[in-house]
Amino acid sequence: MNRIFLAGCAILLGAAPAFAYPVTVKSCNRDVTFDAAPQRAVSNDVNLTEMMLALKLEDRMVGYTGVSGWKTLDERLREGVKELPELAEKYPTKEVLLNADADFLFAGWNYGMKVGGEVTPETLSPFGIKVYELTESCIHIMSKGKPTMEDMFVDLLNLGRIFGVEERAEDLVEGYRRQLAEITGKIKDARRPTRVFVYDSGEEKPFTSGRYGIPTAMIEAAGGNNIMDDVEKSWTEISWEPVIDRDPEVVVIVNYGEVTAEQKIAFMKNNPAFKTIEAVKNDRFVVLDYVEATPGPRNVDAIERLAKSFHAEVM
């Protein structure tokens, strides 16, 4: 009788979920331990919010921040968050998070948090609000290599562990990895990488993505080179001179805000200073919505579109 009982216990213990708490994840240069899954989470920015939605974590959220103020909300996301309130149009304040009785914030450096700002892991810790930082953004507080798509995958897997949906996260990431492998397999015989410039905004001086922004990883996965790969920043303002000198074959337009993608393209096509740029001469522009050009679930589909633009001969 005792043997049967002990055997039954062993079976039950063996069936215990792999995400039993506590769990510890690496967030930038910190180890963060969770004794239980957060129940009142807040995400900042459209791409981080979509990561939460992709993992079906709406029922663990009390709201989101930082979307409508940047005009990045589209129909697809609007449908996903229709049951959730937007707690702040731009960056959240400590007061906003405390009023929501939040117990978790998914944000990043320059994605809802600023170094030395009011809302950081250290300032929220005394109030019992734990923070997980977007991996791409860690470059703002620590030394880090240039991003790859694994950075986004790691964030999804860590969120899966934090919220006890590890299998769901693994299935999602495995699907992305398969899709990415199919894309890279098709372009492996492309004659050479395509020269690419990322144009976010600005006329006097363009705002672009440098070495440490996720567009660099996306462009490389699609068989291109970011012509600003030597700029040791994630996103930054530069001058137009190096853009003209490096002669991109394709310009990736980041679409959001008051100035439309069409207006940005028209600005480049109608400016005599850019008439020698190959991308302008050949009308080779690719438009990515903000949510596609920042780390999140739409990245891999965007990489496929980039690859088709860069290497139509093999795609």
Rank of each mutant, 00 (worst) to 15 (best):
E86A: 05
L77S: 12
C138H: 08
Y91G: 09
N255Q: 00
V314Q: 09
P38V: 03
E278P: 03
P248M: 04
D35T: 12
K114V: 04
A36S: 06
K71V: 05
L13M: 15
V251Q: 10
L84Q: 09
E89F: 13
P206W: 11
L73S: 01
I214G: 03
A169H: 06
R298V: 01
D74R: 06
G202D: 12
T135N: 08
E133L: 02
T123A: 00
G8V: 14
A7E: 10
M51I: 04
A54I: 04
I227C: 11
L306C: 04
F153L: 01
F207T: 11
L172T: 12
S309T: 15
V173I: 06
F127C: 06
Y199R: 08
I162H: 10
P92N: 06
Y290A: 10
I129Y: 07
A169N: 05
T276K: 13
N47P: 06
T260Q: 04
L134K: 04
T123Q: 05
A18I: 14
E122K: 12
K281Y: 13
Y91F: 03
T123K: 02
E166H: 12
E237K: 15
A307L: 09
A221I: 03
K186L: 00
L306N: 11
E58L: 04
R192L: 01
T72Q: 11
I4G: 10
D171M: 14
A293P: 08
E166V: 01
P242R: 13
V250R: 04
K205A: 14
L156N: 05
P215S: 15
G175A: 05
L73R: 07
H311L: 00
S137M: 01
K264N: 11
G112L: 02
E304H: 07
D155W: 12
R195P: 02
A307P: 07
D31F: 04
P85E: 11
R78S: 13
P126T: 06
T49E: 02
P215L: 14
I4F: 14
